[in-house]
Computed example of a mutant assay.
Amino acid sequence: MLTRNSRKTEANGKMCDNTDYNVVLAGNPNVGKSTIFNALTGMKQHTGNWTGKTVEYAKGCTKIKDKSFSVVDLPGTYSMISFSPEEEVSRQFLVRDDIDCTVIVIDSSVLERNLSFTLQVLSVTKKAVLCLNLSDECCKNGFVIDEDELSLNLGIPVISTNATKKSDIEKIREKIYDVCTEKTKCFRVTRLYDGIDIFNKEKHKENTEFLAARSKEICSRCIKKCGENISEKTKKLDKILTSKITGIPIMILLLGLLFWITAVGANYPSRLLSELFEYIKVGLVYVFDFFNAPDFIKGFFINGIYTTLSWVVAVMLPPMAIFFPLFALIEDFGYLPRIAFNLDKFFSKCGAHGKQGL
């Protein structure tokens, strides 16, 4: 564990000696957390959280004004109630007593859903900064967030950011500096957690309902409409796609259609590739015969290497070229989290959770 007297952080093989403060970045996957980390440290970290991948955290260092900071990018998690390895790693790191500032990065376009995670983090630390990332999406969805009101409700500084803008990164750096040096005071809003042990797995359902209710209450105070509310359409769509009656049938139908298009659609390019490779094979035979190559050489290169590779490419490439773009399209439309929600009830019966089905 890092100590106040001697702190070191590894970054790109180099050591940041005698850093003054420790900072961690926490948040859900795909909210721009690693982009902020790269901008703060000057590193180029590529991270990902999926089944089978080793859970790791990225480390770097930066200098803000007259102080040096070690920065840790924690794995993206949806919760700190340790049900998965990345959640366990994040929780163990955040409860350490040598963390001077936690930068909580959330997707501001879905504030209510992300506030649940924010409240969990604030239950173990009060020195934090909340980054409302992807803030440019809010107005597109027909609402604005009152940063001052949200700050009062949470007891920490709140800033709207776009991780790709240099000016917003500077705002984050300034807030980190102010919190670490106690120029900006944070305070724990104790009424959020009185009598509630949100990390008690035996009361997981109760705690989830409590956090959801508290998040909704805070959002009702902090979110203001600014024109047509597109999120209302999203809510109506959610009622259909995650309904107990229609959610599972629509999911099965959509995934079945996806696999059917992949299987049937791949037949045509597979046939064309096979014919093309067969045509090339005839040409290669003529070339080997022209040079009077021995039969075992011709058999090794043509019937062995070339034929095997051409079959693999002809059979595997078309399905992959069709399936992955379609799957990415489903992900861009935001359907994958809804699939995880639909599967969660079934997976939880065997000690897992919905997102493991993706």
Rank of each mutant, 00 (worst) to 15 (best):
L2M: 10
L2F: 06
S6D: 15
T9I: 14
T19E: 11
N22M: 15
V24E: 14
L25G: 08
N30R: 00
I36Y: 02
M43K: 10
K44I: 01
T47H: 01
N49A: 14
T54L: 02
Y57T: 10
G60S: 06
C61T: 00
S68G: 09
V72M: 13
P75R: 05
P75K: 08
P75Y: 09
T77W: 03
T77D: 09
S82I: 03
F83D: 08
E86M: 15
E87D: 04
S90L: 04
R91K: 15
R91N: 06
V95Q: 11
D97H: 09
D98I: 14
D100C: 02
T102R: 11
D107P: 00
D107K: 00
S108F: 08
L115W: 09
S116Q: 15
Q120K: 09
S123Q: 03
V124F: 07
T125M: 03
C131V: 14
L132H: 05
N133Q: 12
C139F: 09
K140V: 07
N141H: 08
F143H: 03
V144H: 06
E147N: 14
S151R: 05
N153K: 11
V158M: 07
I159D: 06
T161I: 10
K165F: 12
K166Q: 15
K166D: 13
I169H: 08
E170D: 15
K171S: 05
E182P: 03
E182C: 08
T184Y: 06
Y193F: 15
Y193T: 13
K203R: 14
K203F: 07
T208N: 10
T208M: 01
A212W: 00
S215Q: 02
S220A: 13
C222V: 15
K224Y: 03
N229Q: 09
K233R: 06
T234N: 08
T234M: 13
S243K: 11
I245V: 12
T246Y: 13
I252R: 04
L254R: 00
L255S: 03
G256K: 03
L258F: 13
G265S: 06
A266C: 12
P269I: 07
L273S: 00
L273M: 14
S274M: 02
I280A: 07
F290D: 12
N292F: 04
I297F: 13
F300V: 01
T307V: 05
T308E: 13
S310N: 02
W311G: 08
V312S: 04
V312Q: 04
V315D: 03
F324I: 12
L329D: 00
I339Q: 02
A340S: 09
F341A: 08
N342E: 08
S348Q: 14
G351E: 04
G351M: 01
G351R: 05
G351Q: 08
A352I: 02
G354F: 01
G357C: 05
